[in-house]
């Protein structure tokens, strides 16, 4: 059984299905249930329940079974939560984060940035040259943006992530 109060698990599920989805997961009835039963038991709107179930299924965190009613021929979709696969999913997320952080740090290291002091925009040297170092939104002079601290933050975290592998 996974701990839904765990910060990582909670954070991951909120990123996937939002606060409403998490609330649905927390109050989901036991066993195989239909989307309508879930909506009724949790008080969450049916369209949000469906959206949440599809996302969970896509990430292998919910199982869906189709059943055909022999007399009417209608199909019923029965859902069960199955969080046993959350570990491998989190591992995938970790790899994706590492990959994106590496791309970002490389980009930050290879470019020089200028930013609007009003916070409108940040651009690299070439882009800043094209607009003559004036903010295209407010017309302020663009200022050199020192990204050393930003790079350091990424590198520190990457070092920890690498060490842990």
């Amino acid at each position: 059984m996974i701990d839904l109060n765990d910060l990582v698990v909670r954070g991951y599920l909120v990123r996937l299905v939002g606060e409403d989805g998490l609330q649905m997961i927390e109050n989901m009835p036991e066993g195989e249930v239909t989307d309508e039963q879930i909506a009724e038991a949790t008080g969450i709107l049916l369209n949000i329940v469906r959206r949440t179930l599809f996302i969970l299924n896509e990430h292998k965190l919910a199982i869906c079974r189709r059943e055909r009613d022999s007399s009417s021929g209608w199909l019923t979709y029965l859902w069960t939560l199955d969080m046993t696969d959350i570990g491998p999913q989190l591992l995938k997320e970790k790899k994706r984060l590492v990959k994106n952080l590496r791309t970002r740090v490389k980009f930050e290291e290879e470019n020089v940035f200028y930013a609007c002091p009003e916070g409108c925009i940040r651009m690299n040297f070439n882009e800043a040259t094209e607009c003559e170092f004036l903010c295209p939104y407010c017309g302020e002079d663009m200022m050199y943006d020192d990204n050393a601290g930003f790079i350091e933050k990424i590198e520190k975290r990457l070092a920890f992530l690498d060490k842990e592998k």
């Binding site: 990123r15 996302i55 970790k94």
Partner: peptide, 8 residues
């Protein structure tokens, strides 16, 4: 408390 924004 922010989870990786790349997830989902």
């Amino acid at each position: 408390e922010m989870f990786s924004p790349c997830a989902g």
